[in-house]
Design a protein around this nucleic acid. Structure first.
Length: 412
RNA sequence: CUGGGUGUGGCGCAGUUGGUAGCGCGCAGCGUUCGGGACGCUGAGGCCGUCGGUUCAAGUCCGAUCACCCAGACCA
């Protein structure tokens, strides 16, 4: 892609209303554009990054054998009324609106209710189970206070998965598969080393749930862990009961800040009962469906990655989620022609800085945008049939021959 | 929602005791530059968040309101 077509106008100074390091860089580097507090447009570079994360999650969800669908943002109040979650006193994050013809609608903050209600049409018999589906969808939450750039917003992209099983044993088996899939996701986006499955409150649904928490200074949650981090729990469940359940003592736990990047819940009959999602078992007896729900905030994960790896010069994207692998800088006329050629041939790999700016600015911007490698070709290097490759993370620079480099490209 | 703070060209900021707005960056043109955010000259761009008040006169004083930020609370 050509930088001139990427809506990138890098800023020397971050707008003063951004505080989080990640938000400052994401705005300065032209990944996102702020519309309102907690409401962001994803510009070309930001959207490509978001889609890369989305695709990693999609692959892992597909590997579970779960199909992808897309539900609606607009919500029918009826199923929410059935579960007593329509009233704003019970769910204070609703964005509600109304139909011109009369009647109220909501903008979905999550999708347990419509998902459960919908499945009444597809689950009739034990033969229809197990079932599950997932989606990527824009969620709306009327947060009292948005903050930290794209890590806590009022409109955000979420992957949510819902599972339907005949009983708890069948559910538990699927739940463990999702746990493993989530670990794969965090490994693949580069957060594996610093993300831990954490005991958390089950809220209204169950005794405990599991969250995936990424250790992060500016994270909103406090987590506690034992020496080898084999036991990690959220502060909200730090009590004698769970300490006994987990077999750890309070004084052997340390704490740190962390950001929640995913959660998995055993819902049990919490939704199937009020919405009457049931099936006929082998004896023709009616049974309630045992449910689970599993979420990953895709845009928040992007924010956490940005926050986690940024250094004082800018963003540092892991290769798996970077919008492009190479930031291409050409110095000189001959080099410019070659760069344009590479960009048109491998447009998914190169972000070609085709601006008329001086090299120094391009170098600084390449560091701000944080692509894994910067490639510099100049008429000088071309005379030696070579180019310069700089690793964004380590700063290490090496010379490669054009031939070797093109060889690497064709193997990507 | 409670408490605190901020709104002045695209971004960051200054603006004295009220007298009709300025700087840096960015942007446009010309020229010199061209491997680490160059330099010179010229130029464009602002109802000072909004509404109302006080005053001969308001960016500046008063009131209201909106937006944004921080801390807390909240957070399937």
């Amino acid at each position: 892609m050509k930088l001139s077509q990427s809506f990138v106008k890098t800023l020397r100074d971050a707008p003063k209303d951004e505080t989080a390091k990640s938000a400052k860089f994401l705005v300065r580097a032209g990944f996102v554009h702020k519309e309102l507090a907690g409401v962001y447009t994803f510009l070309p570079l930001g959207l490509i990054t978001l889609k890369k994360i989305e695709n990693i999650i999609r692959e892992e969800m597909n590997a579970l054998g779960s199909p992808e669908i897309q539900m609606t943002a607009l919500q029918n109040p009826a199923p929410w009324q059935a579960t007593k979650r329509w009233e704003s006193e019970r769910m204070d994050i609703w964005f509600k609106t109304e139909l011109s013809a009369g009647g109220e609608l909501g903008l979905g903050p999550t999708h347990e209710e419509p998902g459960t209600a919908m499945m009444k049409d597809y689950i009739k018999s034990y033969k229809d189970l197990p079932a599950s589906f997932y989606q990527f969808q824009t969620k709306f939450r009327n947060e009292l206070r948005a903050k930290s750039g794209i890590m806590r917003t009022r409109e955000f992209l979420m992957k949510d998965l819902y599972s339907f099983n005949v009983d708890q044993a069948a559910h538990d088996e699927f739940y463990h598969k999702v746990e493993r899939a989530y670990k794969n996701v965090y490994d693949r986006v580069g957060l594996g080393d610093c993300t831990f499955e954490t005991f958390a409150s089950g809220g209204a649904f169950s005794k405990y749930s599991h969250e995936f928490q990424t250790i992060l200074d500016v994270g909103e949650d406090t987590i506690y862990y034992n020496h080898d981090k084999s036991v990690v729990l959220n502060e909200e469940v730090l009590n004698d009961e769970i300490l006994a359940d987990l077999g750890v003592k309070r004084d052997e736990l340390e704490s740190c800040q962390a950001a929640e990047v995913g959660n998995i819940f055993s819902l049990g009959y919490k939704f199937s009962e009020p919405l009457d999602l049931s099936f006929s078992d082998k004896d023709g007896k009616k049974q309630l469906v045992y449910m689970g729900s599993y979420g990953i905030g895709v845009s928040r994960v992007m924010g956490v990655i940005a926050e986690k790896f940024a250094d004082d010069k800018g963003l540092v994207w892991p290769e798996t989620v970077a919008p492009f692998k190479y930031y291409l800088v050409a110095i000189g006329e001959k080099a410019g022609k070659l760069a344009a050629e590479w960009e048109s041939k491998y447009s998914d790999l190169f972000l070609y800085d085709d601006r008329a700016n001086r090299p120094g600015e391009k170098f600084a911007d390449s560091e701000l945008m944080g692509l894994p490698f910067r490639i510099v070709i100049s008429d000088k290097t071309l005379d030696n049939d070579s180019l310069e490759q700089t690793n964004r993370k380590t700063g290490e620079t090496k010379l490669l021959t054009i031939k070797d480099f093109l060889g690497i490209l064709t193997h990507v």
